[in-house]
Design a protein around this nucleic acid. Structure first.
Lengths: 211, 211
DNA sequence: CTCCTAATCTGAATGATGTCAAGATAGAGG
DNA sequence: CCTCTATCTTGACATCATTCAGATTAGGAG
């Protein structure tokens, strides 16, 4: 189907075309909607409305509602990656790098709960053009895996991936439970608990030397 | 389009009433639909259709679609609890109890992925009559917490809950990532990996003695 | 046994959604 | 200047959640 993007060198600062770059505008609109509504799922029509176009317009830029969400999820993973990199940078020890990354991961999810949830929507991963999504997701996991490998030089190579996945799963679960408020009635002050939990998880990475 | 059912004077000895126990029948219908469809979200109308009543009938037994899902989720937690108890029973060591529970937890999620997801739907937890749901959920967590406490007699009491929550989060994240197939392209044979991951998690419980 | 009340179910209606099929439009290239 | 094509709009369809008024029935009161 239609797939044109860079029409002209997008010289004019204003909208030169029907809309200029609707694809981008739709992603931004969806992003802002996701940021506002906590947990409610956004409708494609509402995204179009916010972008100032009719409800069928998005179908000229995205095959599907899931495709739009996939783009939104992709931006989310990029943001996650940059946050993780920023958190790990300028830490002296490997251990503090891991700890900082774990905290940053959970913090990201807590700061943008809806966005984080979109990033893991099952129908989004099954979307058609989830190529970029996979790449971004792998990149985020790669950051973690890298540190895990360096933190466990004595362990077998295959165990590295298992431990990294387990650590990722732990952070993922912690983020989701926290977002859902599933453990708020147990911990009125969740921040302290989250820090402690992150420490427990990073400790698991070191301690997982296999029995 | 509508769906006439047992119109005439109770043709069969089956249903004696309008339906007998529609509330129960709706839950069963939803359960079977959830079991069939992998990941697709069920519609209230379809549940009613399968139960053989019109689509407005459920509103006399459930305030909301979320209320029905809450009942479904509640059954899920009960099933989880019994599976965890069965797994932990007849294990000699505390360590093998923990290990068996972790494996059973992930196995439950893998066997009934859609049901597991319903159990953690955000709109379900916010449902009106989520009283029983909370109780069932707490009971499941209690099973885990109990073992964690017994496994770490030297640690501070407040740390017990943090470690238990962290372990639960790890299992939860592992289950979700596994359900979503998020790590299938990394591990073509996930079973082995899941076992190893569970061992890593149970190891974390023992090792989390605080720094 | 009859009749009445309240619980239960049906049918239509409302407003919203995702998606598609034709028409309208405006910029690009000849 | 005129056509071509991607882009956008309008209209339409099927589905959904939810509500409401009315029909039906169960089970107790008389």
């Amino acid at each position: 189907m239609p797939r044109a993007k860079g029409r002209q060198p997008v010289s004019s600062p204003r909208i030169g075309y029907h809309h200029g770059d609707l694809r981008r505008a739709l992603i931004e609109a969806a992003l802002s909607l996701v940021a506002e509504r906590r947990g409610a799922d956004l409708s494609l029509r509402e995204v179009a409305r916010r972008a100032g176009v009719s409800y069928a317009a998005p179908y000229h830029h995205f095959a599907d509602k899931s495709a739009l969400l996939a783009a939104v999820a992709c931006e989310g993973f990029q943001g996650l990656v940059s946050k993780l990199e920023r958190a790990a940078a300028r830490k002296e020890s490997l251990e503090s790098e891991l700890q900082a990354m774990a905290e940053a991961y959970v913090a990201f999810a807590m700061e943008q709960p809806s966005h984080y949830r979109v990033m893991f929507l099952p129908e989004v991963k099954a979307s058609a053009d989830s190529e970029a999504l996979h790449a971004a997701s792998e990149r985020a996991f790669g950051l973690l895996l890298e540190r895990v490998v360096r933190a466990r030089p004595a362990a077998a190579a295959s165990a590295h991936e298992v431990v990294a996945v387990t650590a990722w799963a732990a952070l993922h679960g912690l983020a989701l439970l926290s977002i859902d408020g599933q453990l708020q009635h147990m911990f009125p002050k969740p921040d302290k608990m989250l820090l402690h939990a992150c420490r427990t998880i990073t400790g698991m990475v070191k301690g997982g030397e296999k029995a």
